[in-house]
Simulated scan of single mutants.
Amino acid sequence: MGTGQLIEVIGKGNLVVETKMGKREEGSSSDRCNVNDESLIPASETCELIENGSRLVPMQNNTGPQDYDHTPLKFKSLTKVYAKCNLCIVKPENFEEAAKDESWKKAMKAKIAMIEKNCTWELVDRPFDKPVVGVKSPSEATLYIKAFEAGILIVSLYIDDIIYTGSSSALMDEFKAKMMGKYEMSDLGLLHHFLGLEVIQTEGCIFLHQKKYARTLLEKLRLNDCKPVATALAANEKLSKIDGSEMADESLYKQMVGSFPYLTATRLDIMLAASLLARFMHNLTRKHMGTTKKVLRYIQGSLDYGIAYEKGKDVVLIGYCDSDWAGSEDDMKSTSGYAFSFGSGAFSWASIK
């Protein structure tokens, strides 16, 4: 093999070549490697690349065992390996599980210390003659349910706001009297606003909507005078990460799409659009931006939409589900959706890829 002769190399990487001057490492960024010195391997012999050792040797006619160089070429610490791993931390289900982990014990002590320092709550011992009543909902951390012979009482607690309802007026009056006797509370009457939700209560219906939140969102984005459209998404509309259009403003897109999830608390009609557009937070294009603005135009024309829970309807569990069957053009995954109701307004819905 003469000077400057090209050698076919399978794969990419570094190649160690034995020459008369000793061993030399050649970098290969393509499928060919240029050897500048005269090699010990005659040009008439066929050569092969042993990938383990990255060494060029003449191919032998016999099929006997060959020597491989198993010396590691690069080391990486476990710290760097763990840094690139997606670690999943599972929240303990009860105190017994949390007490087994030192990090959770440390976090609980820090939380208790902060509560005592700020005088947030007054910690008292549990009365020994009173049993612990398990009324906390397993699916919602702020929801408490208590069943009595006279009916059922439902309480939702968020920081210093309490919403309560039930099947008996006597139970609700008793609960309010006990809470006001124990804590400093103000009775605000029937619920009208709660965390951006607006509630309209009549004798035969309870209507939930987010008209004020939607209008504020449009004004913030300067789209309060936009022309409304009848649908949020076009029929069978497909979006992909690479669609050939130009790149768009990422910060504005995140601001718009990031406002949709909270609006889906009462607007299940935009659930699919919010789920679809949230997949393109990075490297978005003008087509994604145009689709997002169309959703906002649909919201402009449906500000009065919400969920109505009517009194006297038959309590029948009704569910709807559907899937687009590998509708994603990027990974061929399906998007499934469902909605459930008890004969009146929907109480559970989702759109999941």
Rank of each mutant, 00 (worst) to 15 (best):
H70D: 04
T335H: 06
V133P: 03
K23M: 12
N52K: 12
F260V: 07
A308T: 03
L123H: 07
M289I: 05
A350D: 06
I145A: 10
A265S: 12
E8S: 14
M247T: 14
G337N: 01
Y183F: 15
S103D: 10
T264W: 01
Q255D: 06
E96C: 09
F260N: 03
L221K: 05
F128G: 10
S156W: 02
M332C: 09
V315N: 14
D37K: 12
G306E: 04
C85E: 05
Y164F: 15
R24Q: 10
P92H: 00
E96K: 14
Q5A: 13
E246W: 04
C205P: 03
L6A: 08
W121C: 10
T335P: 08
D129R: 08
I10A: 11
K353D: 04
G312Y: 03
Q300M: 11
S77A: 12
A214V: 02
E122K: 15
K254E: 05
M179L: 15
T216P: 00
K146H: 14
T231I: 07
G64P: 02
C47N: 09
Y158Q: 14
M21D: 06
E18T: 09
E184N: 14
L171W: 06
D269I: 05
A326K: 01
G319F: 00
K293G: 07
E45F: 08
C85P: 00
P127E: 06
R222E: 15
R222C: 09
A326G: 11
K211C: 08
S139W: 02
A150T: 13
E51N: 11
T292I: 04
Q60H: 07
D269A: 07
Y298T: 05
E26W: 06
D269Y: 03
A273V: 01
A278F: 02
T79E: 15
A43R: 04
A113D: 13
S259H: 03
K238C: 11
A83Q: 11
L208K: 09
K238D: 11
T120N: 09
K20W: 11
T19K: 10
Y82T: 07
I162H: 06
G13M: 00
C321E: 01
G343L: 10
T3K: 05
N14W: 05
G166H: 09
T46I: 03
W349S: 15
K109F: 04
G204M: 11
S251V: 05
G134I: 01
